[in-house]
């Protein structure tokens, strides 16, 4: 992490706030603001007509290429937060900007999801009656890629996650770890700039979980993808460059691990 980068300091900027400008700090050194890739301003998510507050005023900046883990007990709102970041749901109040796109105002987020986001679900969410290859190819179908390009791209990514020999199999013939690798391949196939993984190792034994994490981290390093992992496992969280702790819908800690 860059030493003179200011992260998450007074994260709620006023209108005149301009990123990527230098300023002189109190210590007399020159600093600059890097424009965050993801900015959340006072995000609130309520369920059951306000009876349940899953997120209760989240302010957060995440920068391009970061590897962030979000940790917290179950029901703390970490998955809800991840869904907001992936534009899978909209907040009740507050603002979310990703790469300049206002996710609250934007009506049709499908293109945004298609181009920017790769989502790895805890329960894989693979389509059972499609083969591994078809599952991986799904995010490419709405694009204007040719059939040949799509096939090449899907094959390439299946090779990268080491499932070349399982291409034609249905997900129910695969082990939990293999299914999760398919889910990762599907998340990566459209070259997203952000990978969001919701408990990617939650349903796996520790050895398989490690393999999956290594795979995600490798993708993060190789392609400079911003990687955000939700977990309740401190060991997994510690692998990330930055750990955000959530409790009762609020950020209670935000620290860099090294």
């Amino acid at each position: 992490m860059d030493d003179n980068q200011i992260v998450n300091e007074n994260a709620y900027p006023d209108d005149e706030y301009i990123y990527n400008e230098t300023f002189i700090g109190e210590d007399g050194e020159e600093y600059y603001y890097e424009e965050p890739l993801i900015s959340l301003f006072d995000v609130v998510k309520e369920y059951d007509k306000g009876m349940v507050k899953a997120l209760n005023g989240i302010n957060l900046d995440i920068f391009e290429g970061e590897f962030v883990s979000i940790i917290g007990p179950s029901g703390s709102g970490k998955s809800t937060l991840l869904n907001m970041l992936g534009a899978l749901d909209k907040p009740t109040r507050g603002k979310i900007f990703i790469d300049g796109i206002d996710l609250v105002k934007e009506k049709d987020l499908s293109q945004f999801r298609q181009e920017r986001i790769g989502f790895v679900f805890q329960l894989h969410n693979l389509i059972p009656n499609l083969s591994v290859f078809d599952n991986v190819q799904i995010p490419l179908l709405p694009t204007d890629m040719s059939n040949k390009e799509m096939k090449e791209r899907a094959s390439e990514i299946i090779r990268a996650v080491g499932l070349e020999d399982k291409k034609k199999q249905r997900p129910n013939k695969l082990s939990g770890g293999q299914r999760q690798r398919v889910a990762i391949a599907r998340a990566l196939v459209n070259n997203p700039s952000i990978i969001l993984a919701d408990e990617p190792t939650g349903s796996l034994d520790s050895k398989t979980g490690e393999l999956i994490l290594n795979l995600l981290m490798e993708m993060h390093e190789r392609y400079n993808v911003t990687l955000i992992i939700v977990t309740h496992d401190n060991g997994v969280a510690a692998l990330a460059e930055r750990t955000i702790k959530i409790k009762d819908g609020k950020i209670i800690e935000d620290k860099y691990n090294y």
């Binding site: 499908s110 298609q114 799904i138």
Partner: peptide, 16 residues
């Protein structure tokens, strides 16, 4: 419905 949710989460438009 769940499958439709998966398709939407990977960027399929409702129309598609």
């Amino acid at each position: 419905t769940k499958e439709i949710g998966v398709l939407k989460s990977v960027g399929w438009k409702s129309r598609k």
